[in-house]
Structure formats: structure tokens, C-alpha cells
């Protein structure tokens, strides 16, 4: 196994606040890695830096042996890095099929885009099948439920054919049924993709994660298997401390 993603000594400072503070982070080819940590730990910021949305203050990101410095968002997608967002963004005026088709077509030369879509390409068909959205293919994405939107986004990600998938809280706001389906979806995607998932939900983590990285206040707190991480007293302190505070807060309000 070789490293697909190597993050070295990464820091980012927003107005004097160190959102990421000297992070080293390596993901091997074929891995399914969970990234957890309390609010404000820097998880989304880390993903934003990898995908080019945020520029790091110091440090390097190397993808498949190539530095990503100076590469813009769409150029990183072209190298094979795909992501979803916490609040899913799909194109509501387009049908589910058209959303997936656009995601699958970015490698085509521009002049080919001027032709109408004829039929359904294999990558789109597979994405429809994997996400179970086949029945909704000709519906506008605007009518989808929250969970279906998240699946469509994951489907668009699969249709892109990326080498590294970054999922930002894919089960946030989902019902328990939807969570279970998303978990299965995740498991099947992870079979032949390298995936990094940000997740808050401990139950989801316990069921579907193997390797976990815990971020806390912009630093890597611990890396290891789910059991190791769960047993670590620092993680318990970070999470349970928060939980205690939140419980106290809830009780007051």
C-alpha cells in the first residue's frame, strides 16, 4: 500500500485563530478513514484545504505524489479528488439523471458538451444503482427529500470517478433508517475507493468505521482503530467533557 494523500505540517490561521495547527495526516490507497472531533476541531477546514477551498498558511498537501499547491478547485477534481458538503448542494432545476450526468461528463472536451445527452452512460447508471435513486431519475432534484439529496450528492461523487472521496457529515440530519442505508452505501463504496468521512455521530462511527483520526483544537489528538480511539482517555475527556457541558447547557435552557 502506498500513500494516496499526505498532509505535512499543515497550519491555517483565520484572523489569528489557528483552525489547523501543525497537522500531519496520511491516508493509504484503498483506506476508509473516519475523521472525528468536537465542533471547531478543524475537520471541515482540513477537507477545505485538501479540496482547494481554503489556502493553508503553512504546510503541504501531496496527492498521489504531486503537490497540490497553487491548484484551483476544479483542477483538483480533475486530479481525482471529490467531495460532498455538509449541507448538500444539488442542482434543483435539473433532474436527478442530469445532475449525475454532469458529474460524469467533466472529462469530455468542451465541444462534446455542445451535443445533447443521448442515453445514459455506464458511470451514471452505476451511480443510480448504487444509490438506489433509479426510480427518481427523471424527477427534478428540487423535489428530493433531505436524505435523497445526500445520496444524490454521493452518487454524483461516484459518477465523477474520483480516486479519493471526501464526505462531510453524510448522515447529519438523517433518520435512523436513512443512516443505516447511508452506512451500507458507504461500505459498498469503500470496497473500491479511498474514502475520508467526517462524522460526529458516535453510533454511526462504531458501526461502520475501522480507522479513525481524532482532531481536537486544530491538532491530531490520536489515530487508530475505533476501539483504541474509544478507549483513549483523552478522547473521552474531549467528547464526554463536551457532552457534560452540553447536557448542563440543555438542562439550563
Amino acid at each position: 500500500m502506498t500513500a494516496l494523500l499526505e498532509v505535512r505540517d499543515l497550519s491555517v490561521v483565520f484572523d489569528g485563530f489557528r483552525a489547523i495547527d501543525g497537522v500531519d495526516f496520511t491516508v493509504q490507497n484503498g483506506e476508509l478513514r473516519f475523521l472525528i472531533g468536537p465542533n471547531g476541531a478543524g475537520k471541515t477546514t482540513l477537507i477545505d484545504i485538501i479540496t482547494g477551498l481554503t489556502k493553508p498558511t503553512t504546510g503541504t498537501v501531496v496527492f498521489d505524489g504531486k503537490s497540490l499547491a497553487g491548484k484551483r478547485e476544479h483542477e483538483r477534481v480533475r486530479l481525482g479528488i471529490g467531495r460532498t458538503f455538509q449541507t448538500s448542494v444539488v442542482f434543483e432545476e435539473l433532474t436527478v439523471l442530469e445532475n449525475l450526468d454532469l458529474a460524469a461528463s467533466f472529462r469530455r472536451p468542451l465541444w462534446q458538451l455542445l451535443a445533447r445527452r443521448k442515453g445514459v452512460v455506464a458511470a451514471v447508471e452505476q451511480a443510480l444503482e448504487t444509490t438506489g435513486l433509479g426510480d427518481l431519475a427523471t424527477r427534478k432534484a428540487g423535489v428530493l427529500s433531505h436524505g435523497q439529496r445526500q445520496w444524490l450528492e454521493i452518487g454524483m461523487l461516484i459518477a465523477q470517478g474520483p480516486r479519493l472521496l471526501l464526505l462531510d457529515e453524510p448522515v447529519a440530519g438523517m433518520s435512523s433508517d436513512e443512516r443505516a442505508r447511508t452506512g451500507e452505501l458507504l461500505t459498498s463504496i469503500a470496497k473500491d475507493h479511498t474514502v475520508i468521512v467526517i462524522e460526529h455521530d458516535m453510533e454511526f462511527l462504531r458501526r461502520y468505521a475501522s480507522q479513525v483520526t481524532v482532531l481536537h483544537e486544530g491538532k491530531v489528538l490520536i489515530e487508530g482503530s475505533v476501539d483504541e480511539v474509544r478507549a483513549d482517555p483523552r478522547v473521552q475527556e474531549v467528547y464526554l467533557g463536551r457532552a457534560r457541558e452540553e447536557a448542563a447547557h440543555d438542562a439550563v435552557s
Binding site: H74, E93, R107, L114, Q160
Partner: peptide, 23 residues
């Protein structure tokens, strides 16, 4: 055409389109 769909996508979510690999 596909370009037309892409144009609508740019209109409704330019930032999201970048993450589909288009400029």
C-alpha cells in the same frame, strides 16, 4: 445540450460546479 445543463448549474450554484471539475 449538456453545456446548457451546465450553464443552469453555474447559474444556480457556481461554487458547487467547481467541485464537479468544471471551471
Amino acid at each position: 445540450s449538456r453545456f446548457g445543463r451546465l450553464l443552469l448549474a453555474v447559474r444556480d450554484g457556481e461554487d458547487r460546479v467547481r467541485f464537479l471539475g468544471y471551471n
